[in-house]
Design a protein around this nucleic acid. Sequence first.
DNA 1: AGCCAATAGTTGACAAAAGCAACGATATGC
DNA 2: GCATATCGTTGCTTTTGTCAACTATTGGCT
Lengths: 305, 305
Amino acid sequence: MMDETEQIDRIRLFNRAYTRRIGVLDEGLLDSPFSLTEARILFEIATAPDISAGSLGGILDLDAGYLSRTLKKLEQSGLVVASRPAEDGRRRALRLTAAGESAFKALDAASRDAVAGMLGPLGPQNRLRLVAAADTILACLAGSPEPAARLRAHQPGDMGWIIERHGALYAAEYDFDARFEALVAEIAADFLRHFDPARSCCLIAARGDERLGSAMVVDAGDGVAKLRLVLVEPQARGLGLGRLLLEGCLDFARQAGYRRMTLWTNSILTTARQLYETAGFQLVDEAEHSDFGPRLIGQSWTRDL
Amino acid sequence: MMDETEQIDRIRLFNRAYTRRIGVLDEGLLDSPFSLTEARILFEIATAPDISAGSLGGILDLDAGYLSRTLKKLEQSGLVVASRPAEDGRRRALRLTAAGESAFKALDAASRDAVAGMLGPLGPQNRLRLVAAADTILACLAGSPEPAARLRAHQPGDMGWIIERHGALYAAEYDFDARFEALVAEIAADFLRHFDPARSCCLIAARGDERLGSAMVVDAGDGVAKLRLVLVEPQARGLGLGRLLLEGCLDFARQAGYRRMTLWTNSILTTARQLYETAGFQLVDEAEHSDFGPRLIGQSWTRDL
DNA sequence: AGCCAATAGTTGACAAAAGCAACGATATGC
DNA sequence: GCATATCGTTGCTTTTGTCAACTATTGGCT
């Protein structure tokens, strides 16, 4: 895990590195006749015509006096005009003249080129990642409360994802071999082949587009529902998603009229074991096996609904 | 898709927003007796003791004259000492005094607090996302030139990925239903169950960790190899990956001693059809079916090896 | 209506920050 | 040992930013 100190250090590292980058970008404006502040002023006026000097200063965090002087210079150069709006004789509504517009366009193009120059050497894939990461940062800072993880029914591709994550995670964490992924694929294929919305369900825990966990219920006959393929991604553990998925499955099974629910798991999955125990499941059988490579103890659990 | 113009605009938006954020952070240093530049100088000297004024200026992009004066001020305040290293009488090796160290520590703590204040109101999940995104941006910019796509053998999780992408892509592009994903899962499970490195193979086209395409060869009996599950991700199309995968499969089949290669596909997959034609495959059979929902024309292709 | 406080912007004086160019001291290459 | 380059310093200048006093206008209040 990453503690707060390390988070802060990494953000500070990022701030240093990135501001230096941006500094390099802004140097591109050096061969224009405008200072960075002037360019920012032109940009803001172009974006929000009839803006007042006051709000401009607020946005750019400029001293009122300094701003006033700078604006006067821009007016004298014929790039900006100010009018006294009828409704408030104190304010001055700022606008770009035609010359101001074209100066802004040139600046804007230069700034665009500078960014393009930064993105240029990156591969198309890296560019997308970069833009996505920038969006993420803004979203996080905007404090857009991170979309809550929620349960949804399965969609095309979800079965494959379940197989992939089971295969990759159990291989990495417990050294399961390919037979495990094969078994999961068979279970998933079987689920899709015989999917009956009244008798079976597959729940995906997702946050936005990101899949965080899975669980499914299938008909085991005799009024017994079988819980399968319960998985929570490592980065999403500790959020109660396992509980959420399990509750969703129990609810579904009850509504579907099942009397009991059973599941099969392996003893090394201690977190899962706790989850099942607190959810009222009872261990009914254990048997050693080596179906997936390492020596394991398979467990059957059950509970009434 | 996102075109370059939009990427640039979003990065520019990010730059504006983020620099403003950092500006706010730096204001935290205002109640220290140091200017931002002095603080940066202290930071660099603390990080790299015995640094020369020249490289300091290079790192911080400061005018040599300005830097010289600022350093003199810091020396007079007793925070920095400079020594003439024996090996080069022109340079001056800069170090913090004890007082300098403690001043730096205070600055460092203030900066850390400022960042902590920025991260504070975010949720723990958002903090992690933010840090991860910042790392991503630096990694992208570090311009680790995007690794070339290459073929590799399958690994744990790859079969699941193949199933996921087949399921999701064919559903989105051709409206295939769940039976298709089920079929792919069965094929994949079968492959894993009966995988024999001498008789079958699965190739994954990958760029770094990112999977871009797949193809597999299985034994169809009578010296015939069957090509299955050829897929290239939309964002990686046009790079010749399909060709690469196909050649890899043909090479494997020849080395494994197969006499012929067959494959089954559907007529709507026109890009794939061209790929097979140019690779020397010949259409031997067509049959209408609706196995995956829409009415399709299945095609069998074959070629000698 | 008339007064007062608040708001929007301007101006002068000044300080800090930054840039430029000339210069001295030392090192390096031929 | 001389030309040339490097490292740093200093004087001078411009740019940038700050502060406080000031004018003009508005809006609320009695």
